[in-house]
Amino acid sequence: MLDRLIGFLSSGENLVFFVFSLVAICGAIFMISLTRVVHMVMALALTFLSLGGIYITLGAEFVGWVQVLIYAGAITILMIFGIMMTRHRGEAETEPQRPWHNGLLLVGAIVLFGILFYVIQNATITPQSAPVDPKDNTLQIGQLLFNQYVIPFEIMSVLLTVAFIGAIVVAKREED
């Protein structure tokens, strides 16, 4: 067991993956546990960044950097922007403590971890037929999107446009 772990960590790629996933999980936990909203957003940004890193280690450069650009950059800034512009109170609101809640949570978490661990250990993952060429996968994504998946892609963009216009309409009404 320990040998396998050492073997796992001795590879640079795995080590990087390990660090990124650790940071991503930490960010997620901090996101939940921190009390100030801006700190939460920062934790979330950390998670986004690590996810981008994981994508890149998996060879998905395009998705990785888009993740950083859209999520870690734009979305985080939008969130901070929203937080700064709006009133938010109750920074130190503590809920009444219920001791048995924590115990129940612990049991639940352990059970969930057990199930996931068991499933992953027993699952047989067959590698994809053709591993994606890490070189220039932007091109491949483009070709896939505009050949094989062109209809879902277009539908999705229509959907996004509708949502976009909807957001403008809602914001406009607010203003008036």
Partner: peptide
Amino acid sequence: DVGILYYVALSGISTIGIVL
């Protein structure tokens, strides 16, 4: 291979620092 994207993504993060 995604040089431009890389640049734009990173410069976006700098803005977080400014806002923060």
